[in-house]
Design a protein around this nucleic acid. Structure first.
Ligand SMILES: [Mn+2]
Ligand SMILES: [Mn+2]
Ligand SMILES: [Mn+2]
Ligand SMILES: [Mn+2]
Lengths: 220, 220
DNA sequence: ATTAAATTCTAGGAATAGCTAAAAAATGGT
DNA sequence: ACCATTTTTTAGCTATTCCTAGAATTTAAT
């Protein structure tokens, strides 16, 4: 059973929306996630239901099936491997890779992905810190919390970002908050929720809660 | 002006068919080249005419325009750069790359191609010996003749193949007739047109004219 | 419980790209 | 010049994917 490019994009969006522990994914949520109209989503949900990658009862929610999960993870694996390729080999900046990976993830060739994985030395995380599923769809994810949830004096390492928009990533570049950077929370401002942090033991900066909510930390 | 994947495939086929000095390209030729029906070709020719990448007068022939040429060469450049990547970096065999490159050539990202070209060290030829157009569509091709056209005792170097089918390429692998190999014509059999050649000064083999017509030589 | 608002689905239509069957035009042989 | 054959185009249909407008259904508010 094969999915079209559009079907793969929908399924991936559904997987990501289900991920966050959401009980049910709404038609509107999907529409805004993939920048389309709710009417188009309804159409596609019917088709994905027929292909049995989701369980769909109209007006009520939908649930991704085991098959759907497997296929979504395959596409996500391809997307993230290509992102690693673009950054590690072609020296793309981490905020330039998403659009291109969005196209490359639909190339059909099991051999290509196998070889690419080997060429990149079987990376476990993409440039944004997200885990790369293995060929069976297994994801070994690290326990991590938003920087905003950390307490004063707690330390850790930046391991991922929630938001991958160029604007956000360029801001992080600017302040030196790369993936892998070690940080320590010095203070939390009650008034606006902003956080004062020490980056790599040398630089002190303030980050708004809009920023700290989108930075994920592996505490130590 | 942007072309769809299907339009790019048609235009590429038209370019290749025009290339061989053919005065006019027929609807049937295009249909068999891209494995489709003549009716579908007529439809597409009308569309390509409207987009002004070809000049089309129904029932009469078609002529590729300067714009069409430029776009076709851009796609060919991408196709061949990806083939180099697959062989040089991912260790694909030269008979395994075409299908995948047929997909990769449609990825839209000028930055990607620019970076890929640099990463591969600005290659001038693809794994089958075909020249890679530069970013302006300029092709610097070497003068070359079919092995079949060579005279007895003439020497040269295999620089390209006309046929890129896996069956043909695997045969060449088997007999050691790689691109770059130096060959010398020892004898030509009048009866069936087969040719006796010396490969790399060590191995003597007979090749049928079906084979020698598809091997291109730079004479020395 | 009834109504208002929000959500979701259906109907109908456009664009792309393919097909078969049949009509139209060009070509070739006599 | 005529007729038969080949080539090419058109007509009409299917499938995919998107859209707008409006109907159906659920949800939230009084
Ligand atoms: Mn991405
Ligand atoms: Mn995509
Ligand atoms: Mn090729
Ligand atoms: Mn192609």
């Amino acid at each position: 059973m094969e999915l079209t490019t559009a079907e793969e994009n929908y399924l991936k969006a559904i997987y990501h929306l289900s991920e966050g522990g959401k009980k049910s994914v709404s038609t509107n949520d999907i529409a805004s996630a993939i920048q389309t109209k709710p009417a188009s989503v309804s159409d596609m949900l019917r088709k994905l239901g027929e292909k049995e990658v989701i369980q769909y009862r109209k007006y009520y929610g939908l649930q991704i099936t085991a098959l759907g999960m497997r296929l979504a993870l395959q596409t996500i694996r391809k997307h993230r491997l290509w992102e690693v390729f673009l950054v590690d080999k072609l020296h793309f900046a981490w905020d330039e890779v998403h659009e291109v990976a969005e196209q490359l993830e639909h190339i059909q060739s099991p051999l290509l992905i196998e070889r690419l994985d080997a060429y990149l030395n079987y990376p476990k995380f993409d440039p944004h810190g997200d885990p790369i599923p293995d060929e069976f769809g297994d994801v070994r994810s690290r326990p991590r919390i938003a920087l905003q949830e950390m307490g004063i004096d707690q330390s850790g390492q930046i391991v991922a970002v929630k938001d991958s928009s160029p604007a956000f990533l360029r801001y992080l570049d600017k302040v030196g908050a790369y993936i892998g950077a070690r940080i320590k929370v010095l203070d939390k401002v009650e008034f606006d929720g902003s956080v004062e942090i020490l980056v790599d033991q040398k630089k002190t900066i303030f980050m708004s809660k809009d920023v700290t909510n989108n930075i994920l930390i592996l505490t130590s």
